[in-house]
Design a binder for these strands. Structure first.
Lengths: 259, 259
DNA sequence: CATAATGTTGCGCCATGGGCAACACTCATT
DNA sequence: AATGAGTGTTGCCCATGGCGCAACATTATG
């Protein structure tokens, strides 16, 4: 239930259902054909046949011969090709490594994915914190430095579309209203970088700056993050300038952008 | 050309074609509908419709409105769900971080994917080398420490199936024959860990040990790697024991496995 | 051992997805 | 500018391919 049964433009139904299966497996982690068929509103046999198609290509694995299914390694392989072709990531290693070395914290690159922030590349800093691998994880836009950077320069309607589904208070300093977020984004545009001071989870601090393409559009965000024990609020201004400078180097246009 | 047109068991053709598109895009990096249609041996319109199905789910992105396509962020999101559900990776962060800290080198977890080695999780060591992110990358089995670990304990037919497609000499010490590989694997089983001394690329050293499930089967490999300037051949024995011990902690059974 | 689950496979029928061709559009070339 | 060849997208109509049904094989559970 809760499925989006809107017939999105003109597409191929069986493919659409197969891709639905992937999303369902991503949510449940491991499922049988029957419950998936129920979710899709199709017969068991249909789900089974779609599943074998996915299985042949390695996008799903069957856990115990006859039995349940889970997402497969083929997806990891494909995802590797994605990030290597992302403009922001390609050729960014030298810069991100240098940044991680300079500030001694974890460095990530993130992009906007509808109204979520998706982490696509990561370098872990020398301090060896380190929080878990963020790759492929997505988080809301309103409580992260990356989210603010990625939305601040959007047009108003796009900004609204990028707002979170709920304004639940996730951490001590979470932003919990659209008005407060707009004010925050004003400040981000002013300063040219964004910060998050324990807004997604407590003890978690981050500073982010925009990566722009050759037209000046913000296409990705460069972010450093670490525990409150090492990143203090009074360091924000200094770190912001550092991150901003690194992000400029990654921008499509070699010239720095003035803001 | 060179397509595998074997009708793999009973699957759904349109889905199969759609997944073919993903693999084609992974190889070419960015393609138009026409050349993909030629590769699939179908009409442009068919390829276009399949593409929109993939587009609606975010598995591909169109680069410039009207125009070419590339793999999309949806794949990264899905791949994130894969690794987090992998037995070997879940709950491994504490161990891998400790290992990276102890040896000061990059730590990876890899699994066997047909006859290739696929890297699924990574922690970068404090020395900040660091080679590029290995995630989602796949390499042959015969010239890597991980490949040896992942194949050494397989049955003979499985070992043969896991052999590389070509025995091309990739680096100074590459193994270039099945016989030499079998002898090497004997040694791996003996020692309980594997090494690679500039076998894939020069200046690149690695030491790997097996991660086993509760039945004792090798399901993943834990590996440390770094440049020859820091990892010497005479360190192999010491590092091997360290990696072996960390890998034991990751194995499904809390008891250590005797070999 | 019986019962109730599961996932997989022939088999027809009808929907659906494929090919065709016309269209919209971008980019070179003259 | 105007032409041309290239692209990707969209109605249309027919038959192919995918769906539901039901029987089957297999495994869990009593």
């Amino acid at each position: 239930m809760g499925n989006t049964h809107l017939a999105e433009s003109s597409s191929v139904q069986s493919v659409d259902r197969a891709l639905s299966i992937l999303e369902i497996l991503a949510q449940r982690g491991e499922s049988g054909v029957t419950e998936i068929a129920a979710d899709l509103g199709v017969h068991k046999s249909t789900a089974s046949r779609l599943m074998t198609a996915l299985l042949n290509r390695g996008l799903v694995d069957q856990v115990s011969d006859r039995g349940r299914y889970r997402l497969g390694l083929g997806l990891v392989r494909l995802a590797g090709s994605v990030t290597s072709s992302l403009d922001a990531v390609s050729g960014s290693r030298a810069v991100t490594k240098a940044l991680a070395n300079e500030v001694g914290e974890t460095v990530n690159i993130a992009v906007l994915d509808n109204n979520r922030v998706l982490y696509v590349d990561q370098v872990i800093g020398p301090s060896m914190v380190s929080m878990r691998s963020w790759l492929g994880q997505s988080v809301p836009t309103h409580c992260t430095a990356t989210g603010k950077v990625l939305t601040a320069w959007l047009d108003k309607p796009e900004r609204i579309a990028a707002r979170p589904n709920s304004w639940k208070k996730l951490a001590p300093n979470s932003i919990t209203s659209a008005d407060a977020l707009e004010k925050e984004l004003d400040q981000v545009r002013d300063r040219g970088f964004a910060v998050a001071n324990q807004e997604m989870e407590s003890d978690f601090m981050a500073v982010a700056a925009p990566i722009r393409d050759e037209h000046g559009e913000v296409t990705a965000a460069l972010v450093i993050s670490g525990p409150a024990s090492r990143i203090k609020a009074e360091d924000f201004e200094v770190l912001g300038q550092i991150v901003k400078q690194s992000a400029s180097k990654l921008s499509g246009n070699p010239n720095f952008w003035r803001e």
